[in-house]
Computed example of a mutant assay.
Amino acid sequence: MVDHVAFVVTDLAASAALYERLLAPLGFEVLYRHTTAIAFGADGIDDFGLNEGTPGEQPTVAAHVAFVAETRDQVDAFHAAAVAAGLTDITPPSVRPEYSVRYYACFVRDLQGNNIEAVWHASTAQA
């Protein structure tokens, strides 16, 4: 299992504001903020971070990360926050039977073009 993920970004302030908005419906909060980094997590555990790149350092692009939602409504709220923020909508919230009949998710692109997902795994098949 992966303990945490961090992306290098070109504009830390803009990316931090965006992820604060996206991750709030999933129960994530800002755990710490420095001049060049910010960490998000739930229950006080650092799960996801953003680091401002140094001159010449390439930002993280074309990556994919999926954040676990505890309910279907959290996936919907994540998606609504992303659309309100003007992010590119890859796939709106829906059951994804190609993965599992219990897989409910949405996909958006962040400011760097990364594929960001919110997913809820239901206990039974979803319609």
Results as ranks from 00 to 15, higher is better:
M1Q: 05
V2I: 04
D3Q: 10
V5G: 03
V5Y: 08
V8I: 12
D11V: 06
A13W: 02
A14H: 00
A14Y: 07
L18M: 10
E20T: 05
E20S: 12
R21V: 12
R21Q: 11
A24I: 10
L26Q: 08
F28N: 12
E29H: 12
E29Y: 11
L31P: 13
R33F: 14
T36Y: 15
T36H: 15
I38T: 11
A39E: 09
F40T: 10
I45C: 13
D46V: 13
D47G: 15
G49P: 04
E52H: 09
G56W: 07
E57K: 06
T60Q: 02
V61M: 09
A62I: 01
A63K: 01
A63H: 04
A63L: 05
F67I: 07
A69G: 11
T71L: 13
T71W: 11
R72D: 10
D73I: 09
D73N: 09
Q74W: 10
V75I: 12
V75W: 10
V75N: 05
V75F: 13
D76I: 13
A77Q: 14
H79F: 15
A82S: 09
V83Y: 09
V83C: 10
A85S: 12
L87Y: 10
I90A: 13
I90F: 13
P92H: 06
P92F: 06
R96P: 02
P97A: 03
E98Y: 08
Y99A: 01
S100K: 05
V101F: 02
Y104D: 01
A105K: 02
A105G: 05
Q112G: 02
G113D: 01
V119C: 04
V119S: 01
W120Q: 00
H121T: 00
H121Y: 03
T124Q: 12
Q126W: 06
